[in-house]
């Protein structure tokens, strides 16, 4: 077994566009669930709308990349409003089912052959990051062609540009969430998580706050989808419910009611994923693990499931959460 390459690939999991995308989406879930107590099981839908909004605006409407990304973000705001206005009055577990259903609706609409011209249906879309007319995201790449970094952190100029851009977006998002949660606004939001009737009895418009929280978290999710899409093609197969669950796992790893927890959780998730996806097939080819390589790579998802269960049972506050501030109140 080539431990060197396993280690190398594992370390590479620290910083990839996917890791940043997960961190952003998990940050969105932290807003939703960790702080506002909204059980959103449809974060994959927000990501899909962000990504598709960007790709479609560039390809179909010929918008420049930044405008396309804005459309993606606006799309998620609209989605949050459409979803939130009717469903935020619902009890927690109903909201979970409504959001997971809404995300599936979004995915199926991107998948259906009825809109193939626009969405590319099952094949998805490609060629929107670099445009022949120079309006694409990679066309605006200020980094000269070349190879940068060292060891596992070696990137070409394109990936590096996505990473730099993604890290800037992530930093702004982290600041935004931090600034909000230390303010009186954040106090109301946390109060709603604990008992919305009580907050209502104090004269706060609970519904409006929840809607704001849903929109903000949704925008973070969409930004995650956009960063993910800025690094590769987009296809509907990515935005399945499993994606939502993996992001939940990242969130709970770090701690749902924390600011940096979701970011660190996403990093840990992807480092472990990178480690397992290199280790398990290697164990299988070298005959230590008596299974085929396909089975070996399936195993890592089994481990994700088991990990998620153990985490929620034994350390619900996450690795960085305050032991006393368990987010699971009810």
């Amino acid at each position: 077994m080539d431990w060197g390459s396993i280690l190398n690939n594992t370390l590479a999991g620290f910083l990839t566009p996917t890791t940043i995308a997960f961190a952003l989406a998990a940050l969105g879930l932290a807003m939703h669930f960790g702080f506002a107590g909204l059980l959103n099981f449809g974060i994959a839908g927000f990501m899909a709308i962000g990504g598709y909004g960007y790709a479609i605006s560039v390809l179909t409407f010929g918008l420049p990349w930044w405008a396309g990304m804005l459309v993606g973000v606006l799309g998620s705001v609209v989605f949050a409003l459409i979803l939130g206005i009717p469903t935020l009055r619902l009890r927690g577990d109903y909201l979970a089912i409504a959001t997971i259903a809404a995300a599936e609706i979004a995915r199926l609409l991107f998948l259906t052959t009825a809109f193939t011209d626009v969405t590319g249906s099952a094949d998805g879309l490609f060629g929107f990051n670099s445009r022949p007319d120079g309006s694409g995201f990679q066309n605006s790449n200020p980094i000269p062609q070349g190879t940068y970094g060292f060891g596992p952190f070696t990137y070409n100029e394109q990936t590096l540009w996505v990473l730099v851009f993604g890290l800037i977006v992530l930093t702004v998002a982290v600041w935004f969430l931090w600034a909000l949660m230390r303010s009186p606004w954040g106090r109301v939001i946390k109060g709603i998580r604990e008992d919305e009737e009580a907050v209502r009895s104090l004269g706060k418009n609970v519904f409006a706050y929840k809607l704001q929280a849903l929109v903000i978290g949704g925008v973070f999710g969409a930004l995650g989808g956009i960063i993910y899409t800025a690094a590769q093609n987009i296809s509907p197969g990515v935005y399945v419910t499993s994606l939502t669950f993996f992001i939940w796992t990242s969130l709970l790893l770090g701690g749902a009611a924390t600011i940096f927890g979701p970011v660190i959780g996403a990093v840990i998730f992807w480092v472990i994923q990178a480690f397992l996806s290199n280790l398990l097939p290697a164990l299988s080819t070298s005959g230590i693990l008596p299974v085929s390589t396909t089975q070996a790579s399936t195993l890592r998802f089994v481990l994700v499931g088991i990990g998620l269960m153990l985490l929620v049972i034994y350390r619900p506050q996450g690795i960085f959460g305050d032991k006393r501030e368990l987010t699971f109140v009810k």
């Binding site: 089994v302 998620l308 619900p316 699971f328 009810k330």
Partner: peptide, 17 residues
């Protein structure tokens, strides 16, 4: 119940794979 719900998600992933 929320915790249990997420445990059931973990179980779902585990069993599915």
């Amino acid at each position: 119940i929320v915790q249990l719900m997420i445990v059931s998600i973990g179980l779902s992933l585990t069993m599915r794979y």
